[in-house]
Write a protein that binds this DNA or RNA. Structure first.
Lengths: 344, 344
DNA sequence: CTGAAAGCGCTTACAG
DNA sequence: CTGAAAGCGCTTACAG
């Protein structure tokens, strides 16, 4: 089958004995066009089954009606849900979404970002890889006049639009919940501190302990325990301490919480009686483990929608000098069996 | 910050005192170009930090170096993994991926497909929504000269490139495994039969029973049990039969298997002793439930890579008349506790 | 191997 | 409100 010959604005113009200029104006709903001709053009366009050639329009306008998204991993709860939310909104606006994954590598992240710049995307939405320290590729985005929106894992020092979670507050609530349940030696599995989200979670942990006058024991703070394996490893160390913790807050992810749970099972340590466990992210599996895992929900689909809406709002606001807006969303503690000692 | 003025082929041409035509040819590695000038052009391009304007190139060539993907849901194991695999390969080839989700609605699917056609994508990769019966929107894709690749949930009657799983074989193996474990009254939770994948899984079930001379009892075949809730509902009915099943093959998904497990827990029926459970798709959680769930892995990342590679191979083959190639992948049975009666 | 020219299909500043 | 014209930046068939 051969591609159909496409109908252009010239075909419409010819049929109506006007110029392509007028047709274009009518189709774009420009104000400088007669109501009559506009109607006529729209009618004829429909009759001829005209479809605007987006490639031509893009070239002329210098924009692509496309938004690029760069995330560490597509198949991870928070990111696939953010993408789902983004897709929902951008689709309504007839925008396209180009999705890239950095696989937690800066090199790949840079490659993705540059590809999107080459593609003339109108906006780049990014959550940084764990490796990312130098952010000159992000500055480069801005210098090309492309809107940059950071979310979740953001570089605070870079003034852009941001949609973040209030990690500190959420962490604090999680740790306070543990304290309320009678846990006193609460360990922290923390993530790479070059990412602000992990710093904030650490701060929330510290603040909660301070507030309740619990001494901070650096022995209980395990660095870089942000995968299932690393979480398990850290847990083994913690539980073999002379004075082991009675609860572990896996602030990095539910995956590390899962590592904690595995080790507890292996060592025949009962959860939540002997050990409380709290994760982060409300991955689907946290509901299904035995016991189910207390965690923090980040409403990631809603986050995706928020990001997209922010872009379209800002795109409208061309008049004034805009300042980098930051939207902070409030995560919610989901209390499950792994920390419910009192209720049992 | 203002966008930088972009360097064009004219800038390079001017600097070298040749025409843009030659520059273009050099950059595109055309054979009709002097080696010397080619080198010179590439050197100058690098010096000036030239970047091809993809929008212009796209318009001129009538293609977009973009592939559209339409899946029912992005945040579902198989699809997010297929996308991850696609992204991996297309990224290497400097192609873009535009991702849409149909949300299991034909209306949305049609909207997505049409948007991708309007976008002049080079290829559309699709896994149909459960509602899709009429496929004229897919024929429309082909009539626009756009390559169409179907995967997983395919319309068999439509002759296109396809990458599928051997669902029948996998189902048969799953049911045979149940039989080997001593289960004799094996129920089937089946999906909407307008989707071929669910028909094939049903066939695999039937073939396994026939092979082992087990009478087929239609009472044990539950239609349309393809979500957690519907799976649970069907299970309640099955377990209240005068002669209830001793195993349930949730051929639709692990989510329905989860529904089965929930009901079994509620009714204090022990798994796998009193009831064997097998799911489909190897969702992450199947490893984490208690007991862990036997299921079928579809190697979805690999499937994504396979699809992308198929596209690029076919794109090269312009010479001969191509026939619609179908690649069938072999899923693998993952045996876990929920069906291991003998081992216990 | 290279140049001159046309054209992809649109949008918009400039006149009138 | 409408037309004529230029231009977005490339690619390629046609000559030479």
């Amino acid at each position: 089958m051969k591609p159909k010959k496409r109908v252009t604005i010239y075909d419409i113009a010819e049929k109506l004995n006007i110029t392509a200029s007028s047709v274009s104006r009518a189709l774009n709903n420009s104000s400088h066009v007669n109501e009559e001709t506009k109607k006529l053009v729209l009618k004829t366009a429909a009759e001829l089954n005209y479809k605007r050639n987006i490639l031509a329009s893009n070239l002329r306008m210098g924009k692509s009606h496309t938004i690029g998204v760069v995330v560490p991993r597509i198949n991870q709860n928070i990111f696939s849900n953010v993408i789902a939310g983004l897709e929902e909104v951008t689709n309504q606006q007839n925008y396209n979404l180009i999705i890239c994954q950095s696989n937690e590598s800066v090199a790949k992240e840079i490659k993705c970002v540059n590809a999107l710049v080459d593609q003339h995307v109108d906006c780049i939405i990014i959550s940084m890889s764990v490796e990312t320290d130098d952010i000159s590729h992000l500055r480069n985005v801005i210098s090309h006049g492309i809107q940059l929106i950071q979310f979740d894992r953001v570089a605070t020092e870079l003034e852009t639009l941001k949609v973040i979670n209030d990690n500190e507050q959420a962490s604090m609530e999680a740790v306070e919940h543990l304290i309320q349940q009678g846990y006193r030696r609460i360990a922290l599995l923390e993530g790479p501190q070059n990412l602000d989200i992990f710093k904030q979670r650490r701060n929330g942990y510290l603040r909660a302990l301070q507030k309740h006058n619990i001494e901070i024991d650096e022995e209980l703070v395990m660095k870089n325990a942000w995968t299932k394996e690393l979480g398990a490893e850290a847990t083994r160390k913690l539980l073999s301490l002379p004075n082991p913790p009675d609860a572990i807050f896996a602030s990095t992810s539910d995956f590390s919480a899962l590592g904690v749970l595995d080790v507890a099972h292996d060592m025949n340590i009962s959860v939540p009686e002997q050990l409380g466990i709290c994760g982060y992210a409300n991955e689907a599996f946290t509901e299904l483990t035995n016991p189910s895992i207390t965690t923090i929900d980040q409403f990631s689909i809603h986050m995706g929608r928020t990001i997209a809406n922010l872009y379209f709002e800002e795109a409208k606001n061309t008049e004034t000098i805009r300042q980098p807006k930051v939207i902070s969303l409030k995560p919610e503690l989901i209390i499950r069996s792994s920390t419910l000692r009192n209720a049992k």
